[in-house]
Structure formats: structure tokens, C-alpha cells
Write a protein that binds this DNA or RNA. Structure first.
Lengths: 131, 131
DNA sequence: AAGAGTATGTTAGAATTACTAACATCGATG
DNA sequence: CATCGATGTTAGTAATTCTAACATACTCTT
């Protein structure tokens, strides 16, 4: 209370800034939210406010999309990497896609021509920009 | 071009966020700008955008104000600490207030009762909030 | 005590930015 | 070719911010 701390989870950025930072359109960002890949905070007046973590995640999404992975795949990937962090949690949520389904998804995506291995630039993790 | 870097000088935050972060009213922030203590960037549509440095500076201003120093004094203090950084610069700008004037200002401010030595909390430098 | 100056509050009206929802497009896929 | 998935575009509405003006509460000066 009163004192203000800046954390990576703190909602700070309006969508206009995030668009520039992540080089994404508002439409794209909202679409990813619609698919629950991000969950930015809201102001009292319902404007989205993004944290540094949100932006990192957007960059990850962008990266994965460029590799030809679709919403469902990305969602699954995030679910997995989240599970790794809470490994052993007895309350761990059951993922919507089984591992089999993910394998199928990825196999399908892999076969789509011209998309894979285009950008080898690691996009994610905005923190490297700070000094 | 194209790639986006986040620097401490990068204009990122709308005034609403800065108000929360620095615990200042919009009126205060705009007033300090009016007195050239800060110079936030603007969007194309003329909305202010503040950098991390701007926010640090706002916290410094707040701190100095709480110590009873006025706009002119703060401006001078900033001018001095800026000069220290470019010490020896043959093009160094001549300050609007002479050192004598500053001494008088500060002496006057020192004598004002009830304001001095109230908060011993160091406010400035937002960077300590990051991890 | 009256007047002037300083920092801030408040209000009004205009302009920008963001929101949702709907419809359009375009490439890949069955 | 009819769908689907990701994104563009548009319209209408609502939130946020802007400037400018006037108000207030102190402090200082005379």
C-alpha cells in the first residue's frame, strides 16, 4: 500500500506501447487474449494493461507462430512449461489436449511447407533490453 | 530499426500509470513539466509518454519538494548535477541562477518551519524495484 | 492586515486512444 | 470449393488525457 514496486508482473503498459514493443497489431494481441494465451490486467475503465511478463509472452507467441505453430499448440506448450514449474503439484490442472493430440498437432504443423526454420532470432525475454 | 529496445530513456508510460507509480496527481506532474523539471515525450496525438528516467526524476522532485525546496531550487540542483556529468565541457550552458542566488534560495527555504527533515526516506531511483 | 507568489485542486470542453462487435480477406486444408 | 485460422478493417461507443481557466490554502513581504 502506498509504496509502489515495479515487478515483472505489474500491469504498466497500454496496448499502444505494447504494439510497438512487440511489433504486433492490436488485433493480433486481442486475438491472442481471446485464445487465453495472455491475460492482461484491466483498468477500472476496462483498458488493457500489460506487464513485462505479458510482453515477453507476446514475443514468445510471435516466435512460435512464425515457426508455424497454431493457437492450440502454443497454448499446450505454455501449459507444459507451466507444469514444469509446479512439478509435483497435486492440484495440477489437467491439460485440455493430451500429449498424443499435441504430437499430432505438431506433426501436422511441421509438414506445412515454407514456414519452419525461417527466423532463427530468439525473440522472447525482454529483460535483455534493460541495463 | 524494426527491433525494439527498452532503455531507461524510452518513452513508455502514460500519465495515469506514472501517477500511481510516483504517487503524484496529474496536475503536479504537468506543473513540474511546465517548470521544465521534466520533459516527457509525446505521442503523435500529443499524449505524454514517460520514461523510467522521467519517473526517477519525478521521485527526486517529490523528495526535494518534501524537503521544502521550490521549483527554482530544484531546477538549479538538477542543472548542477547535470553539469557534474559533463564537467569540463567547453559548451556547458550558463545556468539561469548564479551560485549566490542558489545559496540565498536555499537559505530562505531552510528557514521555513515544519517542512525540513520530515521524510528521511530516499525516494528516487526506481531501478531498485527491478529484479 | 492586505497583497503577492507558490503549489495544487477542480472543472469544462475538445481531442486521442482503446474497446467490442461485426464483417472482410487470404492462404492452407479437407 | 467450402472451411478454418489468423489477421485486417470499420463503425460506434467509452475511457483517458490535454489545455486553459479559475479556485484555494499557505507563506512571505511590506
Amino acid at each position: 500500500m502506498g509504496g509502489s514496486e515495479i515487478r515483472r508482473t505489474m500491469p504498466l503498459f497500454p496496448i499502444g506501447i505494447v504494439m510497438q514493443l512487440a511489433d504486433l497489431s492490436a488485433r493480433q494481441i486481442r486475438y491472442y487474449e481471446e485464445h487465453e494465451l495472455i491475460s492482461p490486467a484491466r483498468t477500472e475503465g476496462n483498458r488493457r494493461l500489460f506487464s513485462l511478463n505479458d510482453i515477453d509472452r507476446l514475443l514468445e507467441i510471435k516466435d512460435l507462430l512464425e515457426q508455424g505453430i497454431n493457437m492450440a499448440g502454443i497454448k499446450k506448450i505454455f501449459a507444459v512449461s507451466k507444469m514444469e514449474k509446479v512439478e509435483g503439484d497435486p492440484f495440477a490442472k489437467k491439460p485440455e489436449l493430451t500429449d498424443d493430440e499435441l504430437r499430432n498437432l505438431l506433426k501436422k504443423e511441421m509438414l506445412s511447407p515454407g514456414k519452419l526454420s525461417r527466423s532463427s532470432i530468439r525473440a522472447g525475454d525482454l529483460s535483455r533490453f534493460f541495463r
